[in-house]
Design a protein around this nucleic acid. Structure first.
Ligand SMILES: [Mn+2]
Ligand SMILES: [Mn+2]
Ligand SMILES: [Mn+2]
Ligand SMILES: [Mn+2]
Lengths: 154, 154
DNA sequence: CCTAAAGTGTAGCCTCGACTACATTTCCGG
DNA sequence: CCGGAAATGTAGTCGAGGCTACACTTTAGG
C-alpha cells in the first residue's frame, strides 16, 4: 500500500503551511515538557514547605499533592536521581543548588501565568486551577510576552 | 513521628488561604486533564486527516505525531476502547459521533488558545508550540474568558 | 499478473507514575 | 522509659505510552 499522499513531497522549496515534520516536532516538545512537569511541581512544593514549615516530609508532600506517600517517595527518588534533591532517611527532603534554581524559576512562572490569566479576565479559581497544568507548557518566549503584556496593562 | 503541622487543622471555620486539600484537588485535576490530552490530540488529528485527505491511516497519524506506527496503533486501540473511534483492519481509522464531537471541541479550543497567545504578544511559532500543550489544561471558564477578551480586543 | 515495497498488525520490552500491603523507624505522651 | 501511633521505606502490581523486531496484507507498477 504505497503512499496515497502524493502532495507535500520533500523538496518543496516554497514554504506554505504547518508541514508534517514541524507538527511532529511540536508534539514531541509537548511530550518532553510533560515529562518534566512532575519534577517541577515537586521542586516548587518542596521549596514552599522548606520556606514556611522549615521541613519537607514525604507525608506532607504526598498530602499536598493528593497522592499516596509511597508515590511521593518514589518521585523523590527520581528527584535525587536527577540531582535536584537530597534526603536523609527519616529526616526529610532538601533541594540541591539545581533544585532551588528550578524551584525559583517554576514559582515565578506559576505566578506570572496566574497573573496573566487573571488579567485577561479568567475567574480566580479557574486561573489557579488551569495554571497548575498550563505552567509546564509555557516557553521563555511566551513568558516574556506575558510579562510585557502585564507591564503594559497598568 | 506524629504531626508537626499543628496549624491548619480540620475545623477551621475562617477561610484564609489555599488550603492543603484545595491544592491536592488542583493537582488531581491537572493529572486527569493530562490523561485525556493524548486522546484529544489524536481525535483532532484524525478529523483533520479525514477532512483533507479523506482517510486517516496509522502511518500518517504516526508520522504527524512523531511516534512509531506501533505506538500509534496502540493509542488508536485506546480510542476504540473509549468509544471515540472505529477502524477496519487495513482500511484506516474513523471517528464515532463522540469522537467527532470531541475533535470539533478540541479544534476550536486549540484555535482559541493560539489566538489568545498571539493577542497578548506571543510570537507565532512560540504560540503554536506552547498551545499544543496548554490547550489540554484550559477549562471552559477560562475558554470563555479568552473568547470575551478577544472580542473586546477589536 | 506477480513481485517487492509500503502499510498494518502483533509481541515483547522498558520507564514512569499511580496504587496497596507490609516492614521498619521514630518519637510523643502517659 | 517505653508502647503504640505516625511517619517512612520497600516490594509488587497495574496501565499508559514509548520503542524495536518480526510477521502478514495490500497494492503499485514493471
Ligand atoms: Mn503544575
Ligand atoms: Mn505550580
Ligand atoms: Mn495538544
Ligand atoms: Mn492541538
Amino acid at each position: 500500500m504505497p503512499p496515497r499522499t502524493e502532495a507535500a513531497r520533500r523538496g518543496d522549496s516554497t514554504v506554505e503551511l504547518p508541514a508534517e515534520p514541524t507538527q511532529a516536532q511540536r508534539f514531541g516538545k509537548a511530550r518532553t515538557a510533560q515529562s518534566t512537569a512532575l519534577l517541577e511541581d515537586y521542586a516548587e512544593l518542596i521549596a514552599d514547605l522548606l520556606a514556611t514549615g522549615g521541613e519537607a516530609r514525604p507525608t506532607d508532600i504526598a498530602r499536598r499533592l493528593g497522592v499516596s506517600h509511597a508515590t511521593a517517595i518514589k518521585t523523590i527518588a527520581r528527584l535525587k536521581r536527577e540531582g535536584l534533591a537530597t534526603a536523609r532517611p527519616y529526616r526529610g527532603v532538601f533541594l540541591t543548588e539545581a533544585g532551588e534554581t528550578l524551584a525559583a524559576r517554576v514559582k515565578a512562572r506559576h505566578r506570572l501565568v496566574v497573573d496573566l490569566l487573571r488579567a485577561v479576565g479568567v475567574p480566580a479559581e479557574a486561573a489557579e486551577q488551569d495554571a497548575e497544568g498550563i505552567e509546564h507548557h509555557v516557553s521563555d518566549a511566551t513568558l516574556q510576552a506575558f510579562s510585557r503584556f502585564l507591564k503594559a496593562q497598568r
